[in-house]
C-alpha cells in the first residue's frame, strides 16, 4: 500500500479567470491529519473546492494524485465514491429532502457505483441512529429537511454526521469551526477525533488555532497568497496564535 494518499504538485487554480492558487505543493500521508491555516483570501476554500471538483473552479496547471488516481479527471460524485468528503464552510439547504432520504440516496448511489446491493432498510436505520448519537442529534433530526431552518451549530454537526455516515478516506473540514460556540466545537472535534484511524486522513482548514487545540494535527501548513509558505508541527499553530500570520513568511 502506498503511504501517500494525496499528492498535490504545483497546483494553479482559480475562478472566473482569476488565479487564486499559485503553485501549491502538498503531500498527505495515510492516517495523517494536516491543518491548513491562513488569512482570509489566501486560497484555503479554493483548495477545498478544487479537491472536491466544484465546476466553477478551474485548474490551470499542476496535478493532484489521490490514492494512485488522477483526481482531476473525476466528477464530484466519483470523488465522493472514491472516499473524499468535504464538510462545507456554508452547508447548503435542500428544501423538500429529508436527512433520511438524503443519506439513503447518498449511500446507495455509492454502493451502486461499486456494484454492491442497496442497504436493507433495517441496516440503514441502525447506521443512521448510531451516527446521529455520534453527533448528539435527536430522533426528529432525521425527518428534517437538509439544513433547512438549522442553526449554525446544527448545520456543522450535520456535516460531521454525514461524514460519519459516509466514512471517507479523506475528510476535508473547511472552516468547520467558524460560527460555532464552544459546546458545538467540542461535539464536532470529538466526532472528528473518533473518526481518526490509520486508514483515514484529514485536512483541517481553519483560520483560528482554537479547533487545533481539540483536534491535534500531525502537520500544520500556512497558506498565504496562494502558496504554502511554511510547514511544521502542531507548534506552528500555536506560534501563529501568538504572532499572527504576518509573522510567518516563506
Amino acid at each position: 500500500m502506498n503511504d501517500v494518499l494525496l499528492k498535490i504538485k504545483d497546483l494553479h487554480a482559480g475562478i472566473e479567470g482569476k488565479e487564486i492558487l499559485k503553485g501549491v505543493d502538498l503531500s498527505i500521508g495515510r492516517g495523517q491529519v494536516h491543518a491548513i491555516m491562513g488569512p482570509n483570501g489566501a486560497g484555503k476554500s479554493t483548495l477545498s473546492a478544487v479537491l472536491t471538483g466544484r465546476p466553477d473552479y478551474k485548474v490551470t496547471e499542476g496535478t493532484i494524485e489521490y490514492d494512485g488516481r488522477n483526481l482531476l479527471e473525476l466528477t464530484p460524485e466519483e470523488r465522493s465514491w472514491a472516499g473524499i468528503f468535504l464538510s462545507f464552510q456554508y452547508p447548503i439547504e435542500i428544501p423538500g429532502v429529508s436527512i433520511t432520504n438524503f443519506m439513503k440516496t447518498s449511500l446507495n448511489a455509492r454502493r451502486k457505483a461499486k456494484g454492491e446491493p442497496e442497504l436493507k432498510p433495517a441496516e440503514f436505520l441502525k447506521l443512521l441512529k448510531e451516527k446521529m448519537a455520534f453527533v448528539q442529534m435527536k430522533g426528529e433530526f432525521a425527518k428534517r429537511e437538509v439544513n433547512v431552518g438549522f442553526s449554525g451549530g446544527e448545520k456543522k454537526r450535520n456535516e460531521i454526521f454525514q461524514m460519519a455516515m459516509l466514512e471517507p478516506t479523506l475528510g476535508i473540514l473547511d472552516e468547520t469551526d467558524s460560527g460555532l460556540d464552544v459546546d458545538a466545537l467540542k461535539i464536532v472535534a470529538d466526532g472528528v477525533n473518533a473518526l481518526r484511524s490509520p486508514e483515514r486522513s484529514f485536512i483541517i482548514i481553519t483560520h483560528y488555532q482554537k479547533l487545533l487545540e481539540y483536534i491535534r494535527p500531525d502537520v500544520v501548513h500556512v497558506l498565504k497568497e496562494g502558496r504554502i509558505v511554511r510547514t511544521g508541527g502542531p507548534e506552528l499553530a500555536d506560534r501563529i496564535w501568538q504572532e499572527g500570520f504576518d509573522g510567518i513568511d516563506g
Partner: peptide, 22 residues
C-alpha cells in the same frame, strides 16, 4: 444545491429528481 448533493455521491440527474419528488 446540485454540487452539495454531488459531493455526497449523488449523481446530478438523481439529485435533481430527488429534490423534485420530495
Amino acid at each position: 444545491e446540485l454540487f452539495y448533493m454531488r459531493s455526497r455521491g449523488i449523481p446530478e440527474k438523481d439529485a435533481r429528481r430527488l429534490q423534485i419528488i420530495s
